[in-house]
Amino acid sequence: MLSRRSQGFTLIELIMVIVVMAILTIGIGRFVSLGTEGYLQTRDREQLQSQARFAVERISRELRDAVPNSLEITSDGQCLAFKPIQYNGDYVNPSLTNIDVITGFITQTIAPQFQSEMILVINPHKAQDFDGVSDQAAKVKAINKGTESNQWQFELDGQHRFGSGSLAQRFYVYTHSVKFCIESNSLTRMTINNSGIESQPILLAQYIDTNLSAFELDNAALARSALVAWQLTFTRNGETSRYNHTVQVMNAP
């Protein structure tokens, strides 16, 4: 007779051990799988929120420096364009008729630097006012120091007659336009100089649902400045985040 020490496991005992180990393995694997899925979902959600915060902050900051009434939105609401302020200030010209120099005090503390394609605009109210040949805008060909502190002379490319002046005697100088577009499930930014040459689009955000994202513009009224609103919907791996934001463009002509 064999002693108990020399006896092995019975077939039933082996089967029971295998079954128990299988159950434990499945349970542990499911636990690890749930933890991994939770981590991936949290990571995707954080990435979407980070992109959204960056996009909202980037657009908001740039809109604060938009030349008044230069904002345009395409008919489908997918693109927003505006002209960022390069320099602005208060002119002191007693008349805006047949002049070739705008003399004024700029708000920036640094000395203005001349750049090609510079355009100076006074009292713009419609898109046509930003045309280089309009009666509200003129091309700048040189910038010279004025006779007083922080006073500068913006030399125009010829005699110009401005159609109307600014009640606050403000002028704005810009060199290009900025354009944000929602296309191909992405948000991009490009610049367009005053000759119409576009830069390569820069990717700002991905995973955008273009069907649920758009820009809206409420133009300036007598009692307030222009309002720009946009809705961005981000979707990735079943995670969806929707952001609605409105910015008031404070600059006034």
Rank of each mutant, 00 (worst) to 15 (best):
F130L: 11
L222N: 03
Q206W: 07
F130S: 00
W152R: 05
N185V: 03
E239Q: 12
W152L: 10
N193F: 01
F114T: 03
F154Q: 02
G158V: 07
D209H: 02
R224V: 11
S184Q: 14
D209G: 01
L167H: 01
T103A: 12
T188A: 05
N193H: 01
N194S: 07
V178D: 01
D100V: 10
Q151L: 10
A223Q: 11
F234I: 09
T210W: 06
Y207M: 10
N123T: 02
A229N: 02
Q151F: 07
S149H: 10
R224I: 06
N211I: 01
V228W: 00
T240S: 10
G165M: 11
I143C: 01
N211S: 13
S186N: 11
E117N: 05
T103F: 11
N219D: 15
V178A: 04
T235G: 06
G158A: 14
V140H: 03
D209W: 11
L187A: 04
V140G: 04
I202P: 00
F154V: 03
Y172H: 08
Q108A: 15
N237H: 11
T107H: 14
C181N: 04
T103C: 12
L167D: 09
V140T: 00
S225A: 13
A221C: 03
L203H: 05
D218V: 06
S186C: 14
A220F: 07
W152P: 08
C181G: 07
S195F: 12
V101C: 05
E216C: 05
P112F: 04
N98S: 08
A168H: 07
I182R: 00
F105R: 00
F130N: 01
E216I: 09
R236E: 09
K145P: 05
R236M: 13
I208Q: 00
T240V: 15
L167V: 08
E117M: 08
V121Q: 05
F234V: 03
E183R: 06
G158M: 04
A205Y: 01
F130E: 01
F171P: 01
R224Y: 08
F234P: 00
I106G: 07
H125S: 11
L120E: 02
L227I: 13
Y174F: 15
P112L: 06
T109Y: 05
K179E: 15
V228R: 00
N144E: 13
N185K: 03
A221H: 13
Y207H: 14
P112I: 06
T147E: 15
R236V: 02
G165P: 08
A111M: 10
A214T: 02
S213M: 09
Y174R: 04
P112W: 02
A138E: 04
T107L: 14
P112T: 02
L156P: 08
L222G: 02
S177D: 01
I122S: 04
I99H: 03
S199D: 14
F180L: 15
A229M: 06
